[in-house]
Simulated scan of single mutants.
Amino acid sequence: MSIFGKIKSAIFGNNGPLGGGILGGSKPAAQPNPQTTQAQPQAAPRAPQPQTAPAQVPAAQPVDVEQVLMGIASRKGGPDLNWRTSIVDLMKLLDLNSSLADRKELATELGYTGAKDGSAEMNIWLHKAVMRELEKNGGKVPAALKD
């Protein structure tokens, strides 16, 4: 799984707003029992039923990214992490490896074109890019986290 995929999964869970996970498991289709199907008489055809409009499926609600992250931070109750501006602290909050190698990989995934040297410029760009990508993937992200 990509580094961004791990971040998204940690925030949205397996069943994010865009169906990021598997809803339950799939079960194999039941096979008819030849002994019972041969012995059963065929039912008479039913009269056609009036067609009804398909039920409207409500749109998935966006995940409030800030609220989720604040909840994770409060549950952990550990050291204060500056996850609002630091990509390293955001990754630590989500129990992800925040090494330079992983941040370089994330930078490549998200299209960073500058030097991948762990500079403040790269890290600030990464944090904002992650927040923008979370929003594109169905998250509700306040402007302060992505600008």
Results as ranks from 00 to 15, higher is better:
Q67M: 14
L96Q: 05
L106N: 00
P50S: 01
E105M: 09
I72G: 04
P50Y: 02
K76G: 11
L100F: 10
E109C: 01
L96K: 05
Q61A: 14
G78H: 04
S74R: 14
A60P: 02
P79D: 15
T52K: 14
E105R: 08
N82D: 13
A101M: 12
L93V: 07
K92E: 11
Q51T: 07
D89N: 14
A73E: 14
L100C: 05
A55E: 03
R103W: 01
W83E: 03
Q51E: 01
A73W: 14
G78I: 10
P62H: 07
R103C: 03
T108Q: 07
N97W: 02
K76P: 08
P62R: 06
Q51L: 03
V88W: 05
L90P: 06
L94Y: 09
L94D: 07
E66Q: 11
L100Q: 12
A107K: 00
A107S: 04
L93D: 00
A53S: 09
E105L: 05
S98R: 02
P58S: 05
P62C: 11
E66V: 06
T108H: 12
G78N: 06
D95A: 10
A59S: 06
L93C: 06
M91G: 03
P54I: 03
Q56D: 13
K92Q: 13
A101P: 04
I72M: 07
I72K: 03
